[in-house]
Design a protein around this nucleic acid. Structure first.
Lengths: 348, 348
DNA sequence: GTAGAGATGCAAAACGCTTTGCACAACGGG
DNA sequence: CCCGTTGTGCAAAGCGTTTTGCATCTCTAC
């Protein structure tokens, strides 16, 4: 434990002031202007002088303060990504796509995880108003924040990813083709020979869920019993259990509007002594990780969460880089039916 | 389609210059100083004047530019979170914890998703050197970036979360108690009556996996066959299949160093006609979502990913807010054994 | 009547960079 | 010999804040 050499400043691990462009200029006996030009290559500099400057830069470990640079440039090359829950694999995939797209253009992404908390959403919305971020990809959606968002939309670059609530038109939107997904499921079950299905939907307010159900009903062309769930596992379990308890089930297939509810349905069927897919087929939506790992593995619709995030971000940045607010436009991304072990022709 | 009223500036959705403090000052016939004081409450201002200023602020929709503020203050209230893959639920949970902790202190989090790509890691490390972020929570770890990290550690606030590679000492570290997790599994299997186990480890370089194996072997006190995997599902499948094909298995239980490999093992056992847990018990590590959804549900060790992220961040910020570099310290977080349906006493 | 104190508001510096305009020298072409 | 050009580098303004340090003015107390 050696004693530190000098002064009161010694031992403590306080961060000392980093070298500024002035320090470099002084040490190289040139003006800050010249240093800037050497580093940016913005104007020619005598090679000998430039070499001297570079050597000082290295010696001092000088790195330009990006804050000052951003202030001067009027943009930060950072955007925000507003999502309700990063631990939800759907949003995690979406975030990955957004990060990739941003990275491609040299942009950074601030993670705005909201838990649908209005106070939190407000704080993050403040980042764009105070111009700390150049734009925002918005995939959240508590109703109060939606209203505030609308006010911002004309003045700041904002894009909607997988918008699930209506009332937000006139924006740049990237979303999966929910209706087509529902249609694919309908066709699949019909072709297997099913004629009576149980459809577990999400809350009515969420557009995506409604679109899934709509596409399904249209394509299935059979008898469909609808029950409203909340996209959580338990609601799938509860709804199916109730129907089974009420008597002989009037369906040979279950289409849940997302995988979680499908898992709940699986559990309820198993508890009732019904075998999947022999007695009843089950289909989900999302293709979360667990869908392929579960037993039986779940037939489901793969949502391109990654592409949704990537597209929304890439589109947004196209305008941000030009200092413009994006115009209204919709980008619908294709979905894919993953047929696995939970569907089969009906036994009866 | 009505024609826009005036000038060349009209129709285009270009963002127009937002109001600055000077604009507000001019409109309220005071100095920028006074505006600043009204807004910050830093010095008293005549109530009548203040009211006038506030009204102008509202009318103009003035929001202080945080960039300028940060430049002046010398910090941005943003930190970075470096992780290899946000779509991995473990890191997503960790990120959520980090975001929560940051939010509590008014900090933002920049998502640095690296895919173990050195170029990408470098770019993000650049953000801290250019002082765009006040600190960094580091949960990634490609070897090249590790070396660069070491150089930065003394000069910038950096914390390690769930560090999985060695060579990085002298840092602030938050990690799960991997060894204790292994021990819990060992005790559990021993108490069930198992005497011969197969241990599927991760790569030798990853400290956490080594610790899990170490704890297990110590506590199990039986015969342990070790096989080295790579933490991916397929390696679990392959290793178990190979052993089964080679003849009568010399184990009644399998402990995989993570859930994914455990799933692979499950699959291999099922294909070989062995029943889990009747013929063989299987245990994983991590407690990812699919663990509870799989069939049979997986006995595993729950890792506090959220807490790891939260703790690392909270600890880091404690020093960042004081403008200090954190000292070396280790925070080990407790794990928990989740006993589910994949373990039972051995049949033979 | 006057000194000290409080209230009130402004000017100016500072944060660290980029960019524009300008000065000076050297040089070649007409 | 003069003018235009090219090379080289600096001074200064500007980006939008916050934070001193001062200058007034008005009280209050003695």
């Amino acid at each position: 434990m050696t004693r530190e050499p000098h002064g009161p400043d010694s031992g403590r691990s306080v961060i000392r002031r980093p070298a500024s462009i002035k320090d470099v200029a002084a040490a190289a006996r040139v003006s800050p202007t010249t240093v800037s030009h050497v580093l940016s290559g913005n104007r020619p500099v005598n090679e000998q002088t430039a070499a001297r400057v570079r050597s000082v830069v290295n010696r001092l470990g000088y790195v330009p303060a990006s804050l000052a640079r951003s202030l001067q440039a009027g943009s930060t090359s950072v955007i925000g990504l507003m999502i309700p829950d990063i631990s939800n694999t759907f949003f995690a995939e979406l975030a990955k796509g957004a990060e990739d797209a941003a990275h491609d253009l040299g942009y950074g992404v601030i993670l705005c995880n909201t838990e649908f908390d209005a106070e939190r959403e407000d704080r993050y919305l403040g980042m764009i108003r105070s111009r700390f971020i150049d734009g925002m990809v918005y995939a959240s959606g508590s109703p109060p924040s939606r209203r505030r968002l609308e006010a911002l939309m004309g003045r700041f670059p904002i894009a909607l990813a997988d918008e699930e609530v209506d009332g937000l038109e006139g924006a740049l939107i990237a979303t999966a083709d929910h209706e087509a997904g529902g249609r694919l499921v309908g066709e699949h079950l019909r072709e297997l020979g099913h004629r009576r299905a149980l459809m577990l939907t999400g809350p009515r307010e969420l557009k995506s869920g409604v679109a899934r159900a709509g596409g399904f009903v249209k394509a299935f062309q059979g008898q469909v019993t609808e029950r409203v769930g909340d996209f959580k596992e338990y609601s799938g379990y509860r709804l199916v259990s109730e129907l089974l308890a009420a008597g002989d089930p009037d369906f040979t297939a279950v289409f849940a509007a997302n995988d979680l509810m499908a898992f709940g349905a699986l559990l309820a069927l198993r508890e009732a002594g019904l075998s999947v897919p022999h007695d009843v087929s089950v289909v989900g939506f999302d293709d979360i990780r667990a869908a392929s790992l579960a037993h039986p593995s779940l037939t489901t619709v793969h949502q391109p969460a990654y592409d949704v995030g990537r597209t929304a971000t890439a589109q947004l940045l196209q305008y941000v880089t030009r200092g413009e607010v994006p115009p209204a436009s919709r980008h619908t991304l294709p979905v894919e039916l993953k047929v696995r072990a939970s569907t089969a022709p009906p036994a009866r």
